[in-house]
Structure formats: structure tokens, C-alpha cells
Design a protein around this nucleic acid. Structure first.
Length: 877
RNA sequence: GCCCCCGUGGCGGAAUUGGUAGACGCGCCUGACUCAAAAUCAGGUUGUCGCAAGGCAGUGCCCGUUCGACUCGGGCCGGGGGCACCA
């Protein structure tokens, strides 16, 4: 019996070296076998890997190793999402160049990932900040421009007047810039946008085809795209009140059934009609200016009072020329959605009701709830938005909401005024075009030149890439690219006159919108992709990452792929055939008596009679065990992957990550769990070494017959094999783990049994070999280093990483006799063992003969017997 | 406010999709080995009544469908997530 232990620290690097030297994870694009593309979201090189990375990359690696064993040409690459703000912050705080900082981090993190034993094809590695990558991104930007998919337009932005930069909504806190603390202004600036809204409908429709995506993610995208069907109504303006040249106001609505409950119309502060009216009305102009002064950040929106200002202009009701509605400018109407104008039906919309109550415009209910008398139905301060019957609405009275909508739409469509109908059916989307301009240095430069004569000029292809200058300084706020003394000054490619470069860089989400395509042929210097290759290797068969990217990254990538198709860089629309969102890694929190947080590494846990208690290792002081939360620096409940990788090894970390929690749920990192995983590793090693002593030699001839003991061993092993294969394919790793434990338990028991008997027959010896090999092969995707060690111990000269997935012997999984549970009135009372294919009649007879059944029946005949073949029997007494 | 998901032992979680609830792991208890500890091995571990055989209850709560419900339907309670001035 083996008494020494498996030496993790010695074995893991040794096997990693073997894999590396034999180059077994390199993928050839011309490999004729069917391809399988496994991808985990590539990391941002922040400095060190964290437990979330360990979990993410372990899952992907299990799938990759399994599919490789199943005979697929597996593509499993890795790279770096390397542009972004933290590099600039590091430059400001620590005086290191963003580039140097980034590549140093990459080197550190790559070394960490390599200790995890991931089966990655490192030959395809790139970082998005490599000019050899972003050069192609710039090319595609120019192609998108030509195709009308990238445009420059004026957009509202949050402007920080101190840092002199545009801020994302998330960077505005309480109306102030997160870094400078300055009050943020709303500004209109020229921004580059990608026209994702051209694909709103398509991106929505195609969600139905993504059947290997989580429903949750598809739903989130559906809501984000936010399609709504309604009516675009042209309200004529009362000529006596309208500004010069203005004749109508277009309003988009989804509640045209409530048209007879309308009390006012409202337009956005930046609506052209508002601008026209303000020209003659200084008070209105002041009100509009006040509205625009506020930022567009969430906090401001939430707390801002709903305000309006009567323009004096009157709109004419589409069904009654004598009915005039006041038009207000209102601070809650958005120019970006619909037409930037609404009509208010206060009785059935809370916001409109609040508005009329403030300005004393009254309300008329037009939808009466069921079981309410219309004569007594009044609205005071709570709007009714439920179902009901139309009232106070002339020809609509008595209709349902749906009928009324249809009737209004039909009448107005046919009511042609001038050369256009009074209304048309329209679909609106919540989705906005994707603003990609960032006033930042560490990003992909937008490859255009601004010429005073020729306007916006594309950088000619032969001048790509537009490379970031490295001699930049971060000693003052704003965009370091813009401050650079010479970089932006160029001559116009068209007229040779003096011109300036665009100093905005692209949103980092652009970088990650096509990296998966670049991985298929990162060696192509001439073009972003190699068409035959990218079309063969994509889509990604299994993509794995966090839910936090469920909307933006995944939606942008879906758009970008379509844009690449239009511009001839790819031949498909959907980049990710299978998507999986994994849960977070969470940990208990610990606090000292004074309230300060303590890291898990500083704490020792004791489980005594009084329950779990935690003490500081250094001083013995008791610390409070707090709630289990996402690992974060602020709560100090992080665990450095290096700690476990260097002590218990990669396989322990991987095994623990996969066990217990289902992969989509959060996993709680615990020291006990780690110990448990490590214990199993050692146990499996001992078990295989012990088995190796009594098992038949490698390649021994298969016996013709198997005895009872050998058959039992084989049954348990093949059952586990069948389960594990299926569960890996469905990413149910926690169940794989359970099945491997079960198989190992069964094998241990059979082994000690054989030892006690002091003799091993030839068929049992063969069964032991088969079982040991299968056990190692099914564990190999999850604990690959240990598996190699055991494979070698079993006498193999080959690598288990290159072994084909074993075949399940289905015949072993079918029993000749089966034991059925017997219920009496739905409660399990007994078991009955019958032949697998026993007739229902025979089963009934056997059941009625059972003692508990006879006792329950007390001599009477049963009311009913339900026999579900091979499942269960239920006797109704 | 709108939309979605989840509630199972001390804990993480299984349950062939309507058919034996609690697989597997962690923790805990008992025993073996040991001078002792660690490691390892064996057994136990939903609650409750019982010496036991065995019985009763039990998947957040209430009601329903069914021979049979963790699973399906309705209504509550609790927790989590997404979106949010969207017309």
C-alpha cells in the first residue's frame, strides 16, 4: 500500500512542462476534424488574477479538455483586454507609462494562468493594445464609416469642467465628477457613434435562435432593446398660437386608446418647437436653459422635480378641431426617445397625473376598471393603468383597450391631411446608438483627420495603424493625446493643408467586440480576419463569462459581427452559439471589535461546541464572522489564487471550484472546502496506486466472462462514465464531481473487499484496470495534473490529455431485475424486486403478496393499482 | 414602479423534468489505528415518538389539480437580479 503522498508542487510544473514541450494544445486551422471553439471572456490585465478568473478559466478548460478527448479540433485561446482607464490612473498615481504598466501586468498574469494548467493555445495570444491588433480595428472603423455604420453626431454628454473630460453616467456621483468633485454639466459634443439601432429589430429577432444561451441573458437583452409598438400622431398646431413656419407636432404614443383623456402635450427642452417658441419668450428660454444645466446622471433624474412651462402654443385634437391642448416644455420629456414629445393622459399615467395636479389641468378617466360604476369612477392622485372598458370617449365607448387602439389607429391612418395621413403605426426602440468616443489616451485611436477645408477625412489605409505616441505626460487633467505637442498635427491626406488628428479614442468595448474572431487567425497582418478560416472556426461553440456582461459586451459583439459581415470581414451574424454565465466567488467577511475588516488569511476558524468562531492568528483577538459577500478589496474578503496554487496546487483549486455549487450560482470559498478537495486528490492518488498493484497489466486481454464482483465494479464505473460525459456537456460540473466521488467510493469498497478475500481473479483484475483507467480519464478534465500522474502509475507511457474519451458500455447499465418502490396511498411502504420486463399483471401480483400491502388492505381488494413500468407502483387502498 | 429568478437537513447542494426527498461533499458525533496528535479507515447524521421492529411529520406559508407534487395551477410571505422620466 502506498503510504507517501502525492507531491503537488513537484508534479504540477513537471506535467505543465511536458504538455508544453509536446505542444499538444496548439490548434491547427487546417485540422480536418470537426472544430469546437471554447472561449472564456479574456481578462483585463489589472495586475493579478483573482478567484473569478480561476473559476471562469477552470470551467472553460474542463470543456476544452473533454471535447478534445471526444475527438474535436478544439480552439481554446487566450488574450488580453488591455486598453482602459486603470492604466492611465496608474500613470497619474505612480508615474509609470500605461504601456509599461499594462505589459508588466500581462506578464505577471500570464505566469499565474500558466500555473493553473490550462489547455490553452498560447501561440494565438495577443493584447488589444498591440498595434498589430488595433490596426485592424481602425481599418474596420473606416469600413464601417463607408458603410454608414459609423457616424459623427452631436450628443448629450456629462462634461466635467475641471478634468475637462466626458464622463460616463457611472462616473457621475451626486451630480459631481467622481475624480474632480466638480459639478457636471450637460453638453452637446460631437461624438463618434456606431449605428447599432439599424439592427434593433434583427438583434431582437435573432435572440430566438440563440437556444444555447441562458434565458435570463436573452430576456435582459430583449428588455434592453426595448421594442414598443405604437402610433405616430401628427397633431396640427393652432395657427393663432404657433411660431412662424411651425404647423404640426409629431407625437409617438403606445396609449392612443386614451386620446380622449388628453389634457396637455409636452415637449423636450431641446425640441425644435421649444427652441422656436423660446426665441420670442425670454422666460421660456430661461426655463429651457435651467433644464439643460442639469446632467443626465441617474441621481439627478431620480431626485429632480417634474417641471413644465406653458409655451402658449396649442395643439388641435386629431378627432375634434375645436379641442385645443396646451403644449408645455417639460424637463422629463426626452428628445432621444420617440419624437421628443408626448401627450398627457393624466387619469391613466401616474407621471402625467402628478403633472396636471401641479398645474391644475384636471383629468378625465377614459378606461373604467371592471366592476366599477363609470358614473362614480374618479381619479384623484392615483392613476389607473389596468384593463377596463372605454368611457367618456365618444365612438370608443364600450370598447376594450385593444379595440380602442385599433379603432383610433384605423381612423387616423385613413384621415389624410395634405399629403400624409394623420397618423401611422410605428415601432420604437429603447436601444440607442453606441457612442464610442472617449477623451482618453489609453485606447484605440479613431483613425480620422479633421481638415478645416475637407472636414472629416479618413486616414488612408497605408497609413494605418495610427499608433499611440509613447512620450505622453499625465501631469494635467484631460486627454493626454490632445495635450501631446506634435502628435495631432498632420497634413490633410486630401488637400495637403494643415489638419489635426481626431484625439478621441474608442470605447474599450470595441476592442472586445471582435477579439474572438481575431483568435482564428491572429497571424494575418494584411486583414482583420482570413475569411475561410474565420467562417470555419466561428461561431464560438461555448462562451463562458460573468453575467455583468450579459447586456453590453454580448450585444455589442452581436452588432459588431453583423457590421463585419456587411463590410466583408466575416460570413455570419451570431458570434456565440453557446453562452454560459457563471456565478461569482464569494467569501465570509471578518471584522475586528473596532469595526475594521480583516482578511481571511489573518483569521483562524474554530468549530467548537459554541459554533464557529474566528480569531486573529497574530493576537488571538476574537473577530466577528460577517455575511458572505462578493470578494472585494473594501471588505478585505479576498483570497489570492497564488496562495492556494502554491500550497495545494492547481488541481485542488480547480476541483474545489467545480464541486458543490452549480456553475451559474455563486460559490462560497472556504478553507474546509479546499481541504476537502485536497483530501480527495490524495485519496484518488492512493487509490490508483493501490489498484495498479493488483490490476491486470496494460493491454491485458479482455476476459470472456465476468463474475459478480467484476460486473459490479464495471457497472459502477460505466454508470459514472455515462453521467460525467453528459454532465460536462451540459456544464453541470458539480454533478460530475458527485459522480466521480461515487465511482471512487465504489471502487475503494471493491478494493478492500478484494484485499480481505486475499485473492483477485483474472476477470476482477481486468475490471480493476478498466475502472481505474476510466476513473482517471473522467477526472482528467478537472484535475489534469493528478490524472497524468495516476495514468503513469497505471503503467501508461502516453498522456491522458491525449487519450480518447472512453466508450460507455450501455449493456452494463441495464439491470435484469429491478427493485421498484411500492407506495400505499402515495407513501413509500415497501420495495418489490421483479424482472426488468415483467408484465404489469405479474408486478401487481407480487405487490399484493407483500406483507405491508396486505396489512394495509386488511383483506379488502385495492381500489386501484398504478404500475409505472420500471419506475414505481402505487396501491390505492 | 415594470420585468425576471430563487426559497429543500447545521451548511453547499442532488432528485432521471409528475414517480423512493435529502445523492455527493463540508461540518459534527461514535469507533479503529496511535503513548499522543495529525493523517487514514469504518459507522452514524431531516425532525419527532419508540429499547427496538416500526410509526408519524416533512421541500417558505395557504389552497387546488393528480393514484402520486420539491416539481403543475392560484394566492400570500421572504430573498436576489435586471431595467427605469421610454411616452
Amino acid at each position: 500500500m502506498k503510504s507517501e503522498r502525492y507531491n503537488v508542487r513537484e508534479a504540477e510544473p513537471r506535467w505543465q512542462k511536458v504538455w508544453d514541450q509536446r505542444g499538444i494544445f496548439k490548434t491547427l486551422n487546417e485540422d480536418p476534424r470537426p472544430k469546437y471553439y471554447v472561449l472564456e471572456m479574456f481578462p483585463y490585465p489589472s495586475g493579478r488574477i483573482h478567484m473569478g478568473h480561476v473559476r471562469n478559466y477552470t470551467m472553460g478548460d474542463v470543456v476544452a479538455r473533454h471535447m478534445r478527448a471526444k475527438g474535436f479540433n478544439v480552439l481554446h485561446p487566450m488574450g488580453w483586454d488591455a486598453f482602459g482607464l486603470p492604466a492611465e490612473n496608474a500613470a497619474m498615481e505612480r508615474k509609470v507609462a500605461p504601456k509599461a504598466w499594462t505589459y508588466e501586468n500581462i506578464a505577471t498574469m500570464k505566469a499565474q494562468l500558466q500555473t493553473m494548467g490550462l489547455s490553452l493555445d498560447w501561440s494565438r495570444e495577443f493584447a488589444t493594445c498591440d498595434p498589430s491588433y488595433y490596426k485592424h480595428q481602425q481599418k474596420m472603423f473606416l469600413d464601417f464609416m463607408k458603410a454608414g455604420l459609423a457616424e459623427r453626431e452631436k450628443r448629450k454628454v456629462n462634461w466635467d469642467p475641471v478634468d475637462m473630460t466626458v464622463l460616463a453616467n457611472e462616473q457621475v456621483i451626486d451630480g459631481r465628477g467622481w475624480r474632480s468633485g466638480a459639478i457636471v454639466e450637460q453638453r452637446e459634443m460631437n461624438q463618434w457613434v456606431f449605428k447599432i439601432t439599424k439592427y434593433s429589430q434583427e438583434l431582437l429577432d435573432a435572440l430566438d435562435t440563440l437556444d444555447r444561451w441562458p434565458d435570463k441573458v436573452r430576456l435582459m437583452q430583449r428588455n434592453w432593446i426595448g421594442r414598443s409598438e405604437g402610433l405616430l400622431i401628427r397633431f396640427a398646431l393652432d395657427p393663432a398660437t404657433a411660431p412662424n413656419g411651425e404647423t404640426e407636432l409629431k407625437i409617438f404614443t403606445t396609449r392612443h386608446d386614451t386620446l380622449f383623456g388628453a389634457k396637455f402635450a409636452a415637449i423636450a427642452p431641446d425640441h425644435p418647437l421649444a427652441t422656436a417658441a423660446a426665441a420670442k419668450n425670454p422666460k421660456l428660454a430661461a426655463f429651457i436653459a435651467e433644464c439643460k444645466r442639469h446632467g443626465i446622471a441617474q441621481e439627478i433624474i431620480d431626485t429632480q422635480e417634474k417641471l413644465g412651462f406653458d409655451t402658449g402654443i396649442r395643439a388641435i385634437h386629431p378627432f375634434d378641431p375645436s379641442w385645443k391642448l396646451p403644449i408645455y416644455v417639460a424637463n422629463f420629456v426626452l428628445m432621444e426617445y420617440g419624437t421628443g414629445a408626448i401627450f398627457g393622459c393624466p387619469a391613466h399615467d401616474q407621471r402625467d397625473l402628478d403633472f396636471v395636479n401641479k398645474y391644475a389641468l384636471g383629468n378625465t378617466p377614459v378606461v373604467c376598471p371592471p366592476d366599477v360604476d363609470p358614473k362614480t369612477f374618479v381619479i384623484t392622485d392615483k392613476a389607473y393603468d389596468g384593463e377596463g372598458t372605454m368611457i367618456n370617449s365618444r365612438f370608443l365607448d364600450g370598447m376594450t383597450i385593444e379595440q380602442a387602439k385599433e379603432e383610433v389607429a384605423r381612423r387616423l391612418e385613413n384621415d389624410v391631411r395634405g399629403n400624409a395621413p394623420a397618423a401611422e403605426r410605428q415601432v420604437n426602440f429603447r436601444l440607442r446608438d453606441w457612442g464610442i468616443s472617449r477623451q482618453r489616451y489609453w485606447g484605440c485611436p479613431i483613425p480620422v483627420i479633421h481638415c478645416p477645408k475637407c472636414d472629416v477625412v479618413a486616414v488612408p489605409d497605408q497609413d494605418l495603424p495610427v499608433v499611440l505616441p509613447e512620450d505622453v505626460t499625465f501631469d494635467r487633467p484631460g486627454n493626454a493625446l490632445d495635450h501631446h505637442p506634435t502628435w495631432k498635427h498632420v497634413t490633410c491626406p486630401k488637400c495637403d493643408g494643415p489638419a489635426t488628428r481626431e484625439t478621441d479614442t474608442m470605447d474599450v468595448f470595441v476592442d472586445s467586440s471582435w477579439y474572438f474572431a481575431r483568435f482564428t487567425d491572429p497571424w494575418n497582418d494584411a486583414a482583420p480576419t482570413t475569411l475561410p478560416v474565420v467562417n470555419r472556426m466561428l461561431p464560438v461553440d461555448q462562451y463562458i463569462g460573468g453575467v455583468e456582461h450579459a447586456i453590453l459586451h454580448l450585444l455589442y459583439s452581436r452588432f459588431f459581427t453583423r457590421a463585419m459581415k456587411v463590410t466583408g470581414h466575416i460570413g455570419l451574424e451570431e458570434p456565440f452559439a453557446g453562452m454560459f454565465t457563471q456565478g461569482m466567488v464569494v467569501h465570509e467577511t471578518y471584522r475586528k471589535q473596532d469595526g475594521s475588516w480583516v482578511t481571511p488569511a489573518e483569521v483562524k476558524i474554530d468549530t467548537g461546541a459554541k459554533g464557529r468562531r474566528a480569531h486573529l492568528i497574530a493576537t488571538g483577538e476574537e473577530v466577528k464572522i460577517g455575511s458572505i459577500e462578493k470578494m472585494s478589496k473594501s471588505k478585505r474578503n479576498t483570497v489570492d489564487p497564488d496562495d492556494i496554487l502554491s500550497t495545494h496546487g492547481a488541481d485542488t483549486a480547480r476541483w474545489f471550484m467545480l464541486s458543490d455549487s452549480p456553475p451559474e450560482r455563486d460559490v462560497i470559498w472556504t478553507e474546509d472546502g479546499v481541504q476537502g478537495a485536497y483530501r480527495f486528490l490524495q485519496r484518488l492518488w492512493r487509490l490508483t496506486n493501490d489498484l495498479a498493484e493488483i490490476a491486470a497489466p496494460v493491454g491485458a486481454a479482455r476476459p470472456k466472462e465476468f463474475g459478480t464482483k467484476a460486473t459490479a465494479v464495471r457497472k459502477a464505473t460505466h454508470a459514472a462514465l455515462a453521467h460525467v460525459g453528459e454532465d460536462i456537456e451540459r456544464l453541470r460540473f458539480n454533478r460530475c464531481v458527485a459522480h466521480i466521488y461515487e465511482a471512487a467510493n465504489a471502487l475503494s469498497a471493491a478494493l478492500s473487499d478484494a484485499r480481505a478475500a486475499n485473492s483477485v481473479s483474472a476477470d476482477l483484475a481486468w475490471a480493476f484496470r478498466e475502472a481505474a483507467e476510466i476513473l482517471i480519464e473522467i477526472a482528467a478534465p478537472m484535475m489534469p495534473h493528478l490524472a497524468e500522474e495516476c495514468w503513469e502509475a497505471l503503467g501508461h507511457k502516453t498522456l491522458v490529455a491525449e487519450a480518447p474519451w472512453p466508450e460507455v458500455e450501455r449493456g452494463l447499465l441495464l439491470e435484469e431485475t429491478i427493485t421498484l418502490p411500492v407506495q400505499i396511498n402515495g407513501k413509500k411502504r415497501a420495495d418489490v424486486t421483479v424482472a426488468r420486463d415483467a408484465a404489469v399483471k405479474d408486478v401487481e401480483a407480487a405487490v399484493l403478496a407483500l406483507e405491508p400491502v396486505r396489512r394495509a388492505l386488511e383483506g379488502r381488494a385495492p381500489k386501484r393499482i398504478i404500475v409505472v413500468p420500471q419506475r414505481i407502483v402505487n396501491v390505492v387502498a
